[in-house]
Nucleic acid binder design. Structure first.
Length: 416
DNA sequence: CCTCCACTGGAAACCTAGGCTC
DNA sequence: GAGCCTAGGTTTCCAGTGGAGG
């Protein structure tokens, strides 16, 4: 049996400590990103407008399509969920035939999956692959006819879908209204993080989708403070959170384009750090450490989910950087990458593909690549690592497949 | 002013994995 | 089982290019 110094069971010790300790949190869930509070500060205007637009659905007539846009963490999703949950309740009371389908386009990923998820919201079964899009759409259409009520479709992060797959699906959806006979139909709420996104849309789609528009400005530091204060009262026990820590959270998040989600994350993680270090209160220091932790978690999360060849590229960049200092262009990275592949008995991808993957890693912020011209000596991307070397070590250790390269990489570890 | 390097990045073709209908 | 569909990753092909050195 594992005994602590005092001779008691270590595990019980921990459990009892947690049970007996004056805890920091009263309700940690209130700081989670999917928590929808009963009050959304500084968003009453948007809530009222959205409610006003959607209200006709209770009487069986089709609401206008709405387009919500604003930067991440400005309350678009929260306002939508807030209004829709109440709409759902009222519809039940009033006995209206109303269905709501919430789809996050970035998570759904493809047009097909968006369609499939639309189908499932009106109880139409479709396989997750295999059908032509036209077929799925046909099933959706006839399912809708059978359903006979109003379907409110929320397309969250709609910009992600359109940028990759175009606006065909939106065009088809806006046309349903015209072609379907009688009552019922589809009403769309498009939600976009990208303010310039409208330029990607076909004018016909745009005019139909944005019959109404609601703009979400970034929160100011003061507004963020109000939001945090309200949540903190639900989430934390009394006198745990210092005023200055709260201010700091608001200020840090305001500096990052007024992102409320970020602000709440900061507060939650700061609370967790405080709790773990047995502190009685959450201080500025905890908030700063939370800031660092969130950033490094974000990076590690990105690395962890990287496909094998992208990981190899990170390694190759690292090794190449150690090997010959300043010079680090696509060609050299590719040479090192091929060596690593050989070491693992792996068929290397082409340089064209690697060039593309480097661009992807750049977009994720794990690498910095810059196109430079060296005149007579050609044109290439200068690549730099944008993550701490400790992450590379962590990557090597965590991936059983790559760990066999550890010795190879370590040769260059001490250098530089 | 011209050349020519070492790539870049667009486009299309190809491959695989899944799944439909008949 | 043949013949068709799609998504997603990859390869193949190739025209295009900024600027140092001639």
């Amino acid at each position: 049996m594992y005994m602590s110094d005092s001779g008691r069971d270590i595990v019980f010790d921990i459990f009892e400590k947690v049970l007996s300790r004056y805890s920091i949190f009263k309700n940690r869930d209130a700081l989670r990103p999917d928590y929808i509070p009963d009050n959304l500060p500084h968003r009453s205007e948007q809530i009222q407008r959205l409610a006003f637009i959607l209200a006709p659905s209770l009487k069986g007539s089709l609401p206008s399509n709405v387009f919500l846009y604003g930067k991440p963490g400005t309350g678009k999703t929260a306002v939508t969920q807030f209004v829709l949950s109440r709409l759902k309740m009222k519809a039940k009371e009033a006995g209206s035939t109303l269905a709501i389908s919430y789809i996050n386009c970035r998570i759904a990923g493809t047009e097909y999956r968006v369609l499939a998820s639309l189908c499932s919201s009106i109880d139409v079964d479709v396989p997750f692959t295999g059908l032509s899009k036209a077929e799925v759409f046909q099933r959706f259409r006839s399912g809708l006819e059978r359903f006979g009520g109003i379907l409110i479709v929320v397309l969250d992060e709609i910009d992600a879908l359109v940028k990759i797959h175009g606006d065909d699906i939106l065009y088809e959806l806006t046309r349903i209204k015209e072609s379907s006979s009688g009552r019922g139909g589809v009403s769309m709420i498009g939600v976009s993080n990208d303010l310039q996104f409208k330029e990607f849309l076909d004018p016909r789609v745009l005019s139909s989708l944005s019959e109404e528009e609601i703009l979400f400005r970034p929160y100011t530091a003061d507004e963020l403070y109000d939001i945090l204060k309200e949540r903190a009262e639900i989430a934390f026990n009394e006198n745990v959170l210092s005023e200055s820590a709260l201010r700091l959270c608001a200020a840090l998040a305001a500096a990052e384009h007024g992102d409320a989600r970020r602000a709440l994350d900061l507060l939650r993680v700061a609370g967790e750090i405080a709790e773990r270090s047995n502190s009685q209160s959450v201080t500025d220091e905890h908030v700063r450490r939370a800031q660092e932790k969130i950033e490094s978690d974000r990076v590690w999360e990105a690395i962890k989910t990287l496909p094998l060849h992208s990981r190899m590229i990170l390694l190759a960049v690292y090794v190449n950087l150690k090997r010959n200092e300043s010079k680090c262009f696509t060609g050299e990275v590719y040479e090192v990458y091929k060596e690593l592949c050989e070491g693992l008995g792996l068929e290397p991808l082409t340089q064209r593909r690697i060039s593309g993957l480097i661009n992807e890693l750049d977009a994720m912020g794990l690498l910095n690549s810059k196109l430079v011209s060296m005149g007579r000596y050609g044109r290439s991307k200068r690549v730099r690592l944008n993550i701490p070397a400790s992450m590379i070590l962590q990557l090597l250790k965590s991936d059983p497949y790559l760990s066999s390269l550890e010795g190879y990489v370590e040769k260059y570890w001490s250098k530089g």
